[in-house]
Design a protein around this nucleic acid. Structure first.
Lengths: 211, 211
DNA sequence: AAGCAGAATACTGTATACAGAACACTGTTC
DNA sequence: GAACAGTGTTCTGTATACAGTATTCTGCTT
């Protein structure tokens, strides 16, 4: 087992993301370092570091001297971030080398699991996340992958809430197989185009629902 | 005058970026919170917050328990970030509404100043930065603009060093006028294409120089 | 009863203190 | 002379303390 010392700030960061995605923290509500530090049994310092990062990533709002609060859902934010991802994910896909049979099988597996996960929101979102990560994993531009991962946090939060509240069992899971087919044919640009269209459609669908 | 309370961490962040760009801090060298805190006359806390942010933005390396150091120049990093910006800047340009005559004049002004700034590295970089910011300023996707600004920090550091050490007086300043011409004709997609090509060329030119 | 002044409180941003890990140095052993 | 163990120092990561500001509550005035 590789011994890894993970700084508290990162552990706290993940924990907070989980809470946010699961809806434990309602949009617009305050997020106080004192409270969290007490709850998690750590000091305020690493908590604040995690909060500052979340604020920079656009998950939290922070007015100087007035602390942090969970950013309320907003069409504009979803559209903005979606517009960026609609360009970056196809870019990453285009940069990846040819797909190995193993990778393709893995993707097909995930797609199958996704179809069977109807209803279980947390699982759907997690599998969709895994599918995309696997799709782009071979892209040599590490920086791009990290950026995509950070940006995806935003629509992910919306997707969670959308699936939960709009009672949609899944978000057009169909596209997974379509992209996969294109990759099997070796048609990378078709796959990239499908991926882009999927983003635009998905964002549009969620936008319509935002209160 | 609007009274704004800027947190120390942000002031320190800008100060550090300045030092990094100006070459005060040599690539690969350690960046210690203790030392900086002493120098700047503040405590370690806001300094560390600034360092953590720089590390996340890819400017610093940070091994847990071993502090921060300025990331050495690397072709891969420049290529990775350049590849992202080559896509995002044209995207932002495409989203902006039609350019007002004032904006066009402003851009022309900056381009002229750029031509006259031969030799003064800091000024060239600053003007180029201003030109791009002005070019994209009307893009309604704020999130995208912020992202671009963050990413630009990376090639900016390379550009500084390149101009200083490679004794190049300017980096193909020509493209500024070309893009501007396209905009004057109202040909947005041509402008976007030029912008993208400029990135690819510029990155390539700097790549060749990296030790 | 509504509105305002002022005190009390809570919380943020920053400073300082502490514990443990990494590194440098010295002396010892082979 | 080289390798290594032990020790001291430095530095990072985290905890706690403090100061100043925003917010809330209370009591008074109209």
């Amino acid at each position: 087992m590789p011994i890894t010392r993970v700084p508290l700030r990162e552990q706290i960061h993940s924990e907070l993301l989980d809470r946010i995605h699961s809806g434990d923290i309602p949009p617009g509500s305050r997020v106080q370092d004192t409270t969290l530090a007490r709850q998690l049994g750590v000091s305020r310092t690493p908590v604040r570091e995690a909060l500052i990062r979340l604020a920079r990533d656009g998950v939290l709002d922070s007015d100087t001297g007035r602390g942090f609060r969970l950013r309320p859902f907003a069409r504009a934010e979803l559209r903005d971030v979606g517009g960026i991802l609609a360009v970056l994910e196809p870019l990453a896909l285009g940069l990846a080398p040819d797909f190995s049979p193993e990778r393709l099988t893995g993707l097909a597996d995930l797609a199958r699991q996704l179809e069977q996960a109807r209803g279980d929101v947390a699982r759907i979102v997690e599998l969709d996340e895994a599918w995309h990560r696997s799709l782009l994993a071979d892209c040599p531009n590490r920086r791009l992958l990290e950026l995509i991962a950070t940006l995806r946090q935003v629509p992910r939060r919306y997707l969670h809430a959308y699936l939960r509240e709009a009672r949609r069992v899944s978000l057009s899971a169909l596209h997974h197989t379509r992209v996969l087919d294109a990759l099997r044919r070796g048609d990378r640009s078709a796959a990239a185009a499908l991926l882009e269209r999927r983003w635009r459609r998905g964002i549009q669908e969620m936008e319509g629902w935002i209160p």
